[in-house]
């Protein structure tokens, strides 16, 4: 392990540090975490405070991003919306990575019929227009953020499964795995001690990019009115109102959209940065 750790700090960090875009992405991601944890301290308004006398005000020193059709402070709602997107991003990617890793490991390690069945299942799932599948299930369920996260996760694991399987296939016949087997290590031990740690880095990259994708999906669902339900603020459902008032209140559309853009951009830059640092071949 000492070797891995020193490799991480020297090689990985040295490469990653020089990628200014990736560092910027990482900083934005950290800021987003801070923003969602410290939301009540950052803004003095309540996200749900309705004020009939201050409806659709344009941005001012009092209301940085203006107010919405119910007089709520848009800046506050965007800040609180960060909580939703973080939650959705991490939980749904967590589910996708867990399913994809297990199926990919089993598929690659055991091969044969198990492999064929799992990989055909992956092929079938990839045929469905994912957004159709998500929409179909969510509309039949009670609107609830946990269902949304579960379904985004359940429809997003196929890439990870293929990635892990490919990694396992290339690792399975390597000398260190054969040596472990010769020493009498069990399947589980080989999988968890020897194969999984080596397959972790591509999964990390695809998880980081996956967070970005999940945030986009959630915002699209909320925009269509079947994601996060009002009054809970989410970037997508603020934009729904933005669409209705697009002629009178540009700020309702601009700021939540920018928030999505910056967040997704940050995760993408971070993910690409990690990939380049792990695999310098791509960057040469």
């Amino acid at each position: 392990m000492a070797l891995r750790e020193s490799w991480f700090y020297t090689v990985f960090w040295r490469r990653f540090r020089h990628n200014r875009l990736a560092i910027a992405g990482g900083i934005v991601v950290l800021l987003l975490f801070l923003l969602s944890f410290l939301a009540p301290y950052i803004t003095t308004w309540e996200p749900g405070a309705i004020d009939a006398y201050h409806v659709l005000l344009s941005p001012s020193p009092d209301h940085w991003f203006g107010t919405d059709e119910l007089g709520r402070d848009v800046f506050t709602r965007v800040v609180y919306g960060a909580r939703i997107s973080l939650k959705v991003g991490f939980v749904s990617v967590g589910i996708a990575v867990a399913i994809g890793t297990v199926l990919g490991l089993v598929s690659g390690f055991y091969g044969g019929v198990v492999d064929t069945v799992i990989m055909r299942f992956v092929d079938i799932m990839l045929c469905f227009p994912t957004f159709f599948l998500i929409l179909a299930v969510i509309a039949f369920l009670e609107p609830d953020i946990w269902y949304i996260m579960a379904i985004i996760g359940l429809t997003g694991w196929m890439g990870v499964a293929r990635l892990v399987r490919a990694e396992v296939l290339s690792l399975r016949e390597r000398d260190f795995v054969l040596a472990a087997r010769a020493l009498g290590a069990s399947d589980l031990r080989i999988i968890f001690r020897h194969i999984l740690p080596n397959a972790a880095s591509p999964v990390l990259v695809s998880a980081t990019l996956g967070v970005a994708g999940a945030i986009l999906t959630e915002s699209a669902l909320s925009f269509l009115g079947i994601g996060v339900q009002p009054p809970t603020p989410s970037w997508g459902n603020i934009l729904t109102a933005g669409k209705d008032y697009v002629e009178f209140a540009w700020w309702l559309s601009l700021f939540p959209g920018l928030a999505i853009l910056v967040t997704v951009l940050a995760y993408n830059l971070l993910g690409e940065g990690i990939r380049d640092a792990l695999d310098p071949r791509l960057n040469r």
């Binding site: 669409k243 697009v246 997704v264 951009l265």
Partner: peptide
């Protein structure tokens, strides 16, 4: 390319509608 990855389609649609349509 990175911007293209990150822009939500529906937001882009909204902006274009506002700008070119309205």
């Amino acid at each position: 390319v990175f911007l293209g990855f990150a822009v939500p389609t529906f937001w882009l649609a909204l902006l274009l509608m506002y700008f070119f349509g309205v």
